[in-house]
């Protein structure tokens, strides 16, 4: 049944503008990152690592979460329109499958966005005549960022499900990211408080604007918090779908 829901959600995205957003938005940080790297070769001397800091500087700090929010808001928008909530809640599938269907699609688009930014990073590196391929560590950071993206995906799906406005959850995602940057600057002992704020996890996972690993020794708590947030937001969303009446 979950597979059927995933297929139905994927069908809703066919020929949608979301793919264009998925492709175009990562182009901007990639081009600007390369431009900035090329203009500051005197300071940025760490090759692929330095280029990574420039490409991910604003992308993961401020724009990755709003981009996921955009996808999530788009998926729920059609349910908020034309009394579709009534139709959605009367189809013979379990509500959790409806949510999981949307979640799976969001995770796929999020992963695709990450792959696109990595491809642009690779092309940018070659354009800057960087030798060989990027270190495997950077690919690991990208995967870590994608993992954090799953927690944000479930949170944004929950927000867009509860808030009927298309735009509000996207605004919240940007503010969450700004707060994420602030909170990740605080620490309790050796551990950054950013681990407790879902939007910080993303920039910590991506190791944005750092060429040494900020999560060194903290990878396990990081994964733990990602899983915790993912399960928590998914549970709240499914519980809400089960227990609250819809406002069509």
């Amino acid at each position: 049944m979950t597979l059927l829901c995933i297929r139905a959600e994927a069908a809703k995205l066919r020929r949608s503008v979301i793919w264009l957003a998925c492709l175009l938005l990562p182009v901007i940080p990639a081009i600007m990152g390369v431009f900035n790297y090329q203009s500051n070769l005197g300071i940025l001397t760490n090759g692929w690592y330095s280029l990574w800091t420039q490409v991910t500087l604003f992308y993961s700090n401020f724009f990755y979460a709003p981009l996921i929010a955009l996808y999530a808001a788009y998926l729920w928008r059609m349910e908020h329109m034309d009394h579709n909530w009534n139709v959605l809640m009367t189809v013979p599938v379990r509500v959790r499958d409806i949510f999981f269907g949307k979640l799976a699609v969001i995770l796929f688009v999020t992963l695709l966005t990450q792959m696109i930014i990595f491809s642009f990073y690779l092309i940018g590196g070659k354009f800057c005549q960087l030798p060989g391929l990027p270190p495997a560590e950077i690919f690991f950071w990208l995967l870590r960022g994608s993992l954090a993206g799953t927690a944000i995906g479930s949170l944004q799906l929950l927000l867009s499900m509860c808030i009927r406005s298309f735009a509000l959850p996207i605004g919240f995602a940007l503010l969450g990211s700004v707060m994420g940057l602030v909170i990740s600057g605080f620490s309790a002992g050796e551990t950054s408080l950013g681990l407790c704020w879902p939007y910080s996890l993303m920039l910590m996972g991506m190791n944005a604007n750092r060429d040494t690993d900020t999560l060194a020794g903290n990878s396990l708590p990081f994964v733990g918090f990602v899983v915790l947030f993912f399960l928590l937001f998914t549970w709240i969303a499914v519980h809400r779908l089960k227990t609250r009446d819809v406002q069509a």
Binding site: V17, L24, I28, F63, L67, L70, R77, F166
Partner: peptide
């Protein structure tokens, strides 16, 4: 989605 996309892209371009 289009106006929000333009808003996000604008923020990006403004920063850069």
């Amino acid at each position: 989605i289009a106006p929000l996309f333009i808003g996000l892209a604008g923020a990006f371009l403004g920063l850069f």
